[in-house]
Structures are given as structure tokens and as C-alpha cells.
């Protein structure tokens, strides 16, 4: 019988929230709610990372998944019009594949957590390895050049987005017509 500590209480709360939001995401009829619940789910998982002493992974989880990717999802959902998508019946071939893949993951989880010793999965490493300080230090020394190149790539991407979307008046209409077709 493990001792009930504050940490355990927090963990159980966060884990329950994560599972609840995941289930809510699956069963929600409204795709926007699903997407928002997924954002919530990502955030709770990020919280679990924080509790395990991995702040960088937690922050990356929030900025990359909850932030960038989910906002993209939301944009797509809203631009395509959710009402129309909701009425489309699910493809049977897709659900068969989904069930099969789900079974694979469940089997894998059972094998890993029940049949093999779970403690063997624990990777012990110095806390410094995943610290933000350490990563920042590496980024500005060993990986300075990749860091700088990345900034130029982002600059080019921004310039490109502006060039391609900023059209003169008649051009804008033509593009709209294309989409409607």
C-alpha cells in the first residue's frame, strides 16, 4: 500500500483529466470540441512531464503540439466547415485499420508493462541532460550553425507566406474562384 503523498494525488488528478479529455475527444460529436479537448489532453500530458522533472519536453509538448499543431488543426476544421464533415459517414476500411492498429498498441502496452519488468524501462540519467540550460548551452555552442540556418529558413518561410498570399485585387478573385471549383 503506497503512502498517499501530495505528488500522488496530483498525479492521479492529472492522469484522470488526461484520460477523460482523451475519451471526450473520441466521443465528442463536434469536431471543434474534439480538437479543443485534444489541446487540453496535450497540456495535461505536458504537466506529467513537468512532474517527472523534464521541463524541456513539457514545454516542447505545449508549444509544438498544443500550440502549433493543434492551432493548425483548428484552422483546417474551421476553414473546411465542420457541419459538412460531421455528416460524412466513416469509411469502413478506415475503421478496420483503426481497430487493428489500436489492438497492436494495446498488445504492445500489455507486453511491455505486464510481462516485462516495468522498472527496466526507467532510464536513469542525470537531470541535467534534459534541462533547458543544458539544451540552450548546446544550441549556442555545438549547434550554433544549425540554429542560425534554422532562423534563415524561418525568415524565408515568412517572406514566402507573405508573397504568396498578398495578391493584387483581380488576382485575389481568381484564387478564390479556384477554391470554389
Amino acid at each position: 500500500m503506497p503512502v498517499i503523498t501530495l505528488q500522488l494525488v496530483i498525479f492521479i488528478t492529472v492522469a484522470a483529466l488526461a484520460i477523460a479529455s482523451a475519451l471526450g475527444m473520441l466521443f465528442s460529436r463536434n469536431t471543434v470540441y474534439s480538437a479543443l479537448l485534444l489541446v487540453f489532453n496535450f497540456t495535461t500530458v505536458a504537466f506529467l512531464y513537468f512532474m517527472m522533472g523534464a521541463p524541456f519536453i513539457g514545454l516542447a509538448q505545449i508549444t509544438v503540439y498544443a500550440g502549433a499543431i493543434m492551432v493548425l488543426f483548428l484552422f483546417v476544421i474551421m476553414l473546411l466547415g465542420t457541419e459538412q464533415i460531421a455528416r460524412i459517414e466513416q469509411l469502413s476500411a478506415q475503421s478496420v485499420a483503426a481497430v487493428l492498429l489500436g489492438l497492436v498498441i494495446i498488445t504492445e502496452a500489455v507486453v511491455v508493462f505486464l510481462l516485462r519488468n516495468p522498472t527496466s524501462l526507467v532510464v536513469t540519467s542525470g537531470g541535467d541532460v534534459v534541462s533547458v540550460n543544458e539544451i540552450g548551452g548546446l544550441l549556442y555552442s555545438q549547434y550554433l550553425l544549425p540554429f542560425e540556418i534554422t532562423s534563415f529558413i524561418l525568415l524565408v518561410a515568412v517572406v514566402g507566406a507573405i508573397i504568396l498570399t498578398k495578391q493584387e485585387k483581380p488576382a485575389g478573385k481568381a484564387v478564390e474562384g479556384e477554391v470554389k471549383k
Binding site: G160, P170, V175
Partner: peptide, 11 residues
Amino acid sequence: PLYILAGLAVP
């Protein structure tokens, strides 16, 4: 940049 340049004539 090449992706962008390919779309320079975009209308």
C-alpha cells in the same frame, strides 16, 4: 525558396 519561386506566377 524554390517552392515559393515556383508559385511566383500564382494567379
